[in-house]
């Protein structure tokens, strides 16, 4: 009969294994911590693979503001515009709006950026809050930040700007109406947008 007892392997081997596991746990925790505090800002898309290429003229986009007036993206020329296209039911967007309001809006504002938050046409076919409700629940209300606009748009513009039906996509449009850069998940890529907006402001005209 073969009795198997715990601890049959040598004590030094066991200590080595437990020590290795401990080291791995500490390294993993350190890696996660470092990533959490320094590495979560992902680069924006500069290769132009999302919808419209960087350098292209921004296609027309009707803008139906929550205050009831209608305008268009081209009418906002003269300012850099960060167009943030969202599905209002997307939890990532619902978390990003207060993140912008509390941490990033002042930087965007000082860089002279108009933030235009646009709901995907028909909320991508899934029921979510209206844009007015989204603004009031997650961004302190549509009128609470000057230069932060909330709007709906058309199906055509949604298809053009968001061809893959992403829930959280953005474009930085220069004051002359050219796409500067774009990205997904604004909450983790906003620093890239701000950096690009600041360089637009400092670039010689």
């Amino acid at each position: 009969m073969t009795n198997r007892k715990p601890g049959r392997r040598s004590g030094s081997k066991r200590k080595l294994l437990l020590f290795s596991i401990g080291v791995l746990v500490v390294l993993a925790a350190a890696g996660v911590g470092a990533y959490a505090f320094y590495g979560h800002q992902q680069p924006a898309n500069t290769a132009g693979t999302i919808g419209i290429n960087a350098g292209d003229k921004a296609p027309s986009m009707p803008v139906y503001l929550t205050n009831g007036t209608s305008t268009s993206l081209s009418s906002l020329q003269g300012h850099a515009v960060l167009v943030w296209i969202v599905a209002t039911w997307c939890p990532g967007c619902q978390e990003t709006a207060p993140l912008i309001a509390s941490q990033y809006y002042s930087q965007l504002s000082s860089a002279g950026v108009t933030l235009l938050t646009v709901e995907d046409y028909n909320d991508l076919g899934y029921a979510g809050p209206t844009m007015t409700q989204f603004a009031s629940q997650y961004a302190g209300g549509a009128g609470s930040h000057q230069g932060w606009l909330f709007a709906d748009t058309s199906q055509g513009a949604t298809y053009t700007y968001n061809p893959q039906a992403d829930l959280d996509i953005w474009y930085l449009v220069s004051p002359s109406g050219t796409i500067v850069t774009s990205g997904l998940n604004l909450g983790t890529t906003i620093q890239s947008a701000i950096t690009a907006a600041v360089s637009l402001q400092t670039a010689p005209s």
Partner: peptide
């Protein structure tokens, strides 16, 4: 605790723990 509310943002964002 940090990861679950961060996942919808597409990265590990400590701020997201409030959600």
């Amino acid at each position: 605790l940090f990861l679950l509310p961060s996942l919808p943002l597409g990265g590990l964002v400590p701020y997201a723990i409030r959600f």
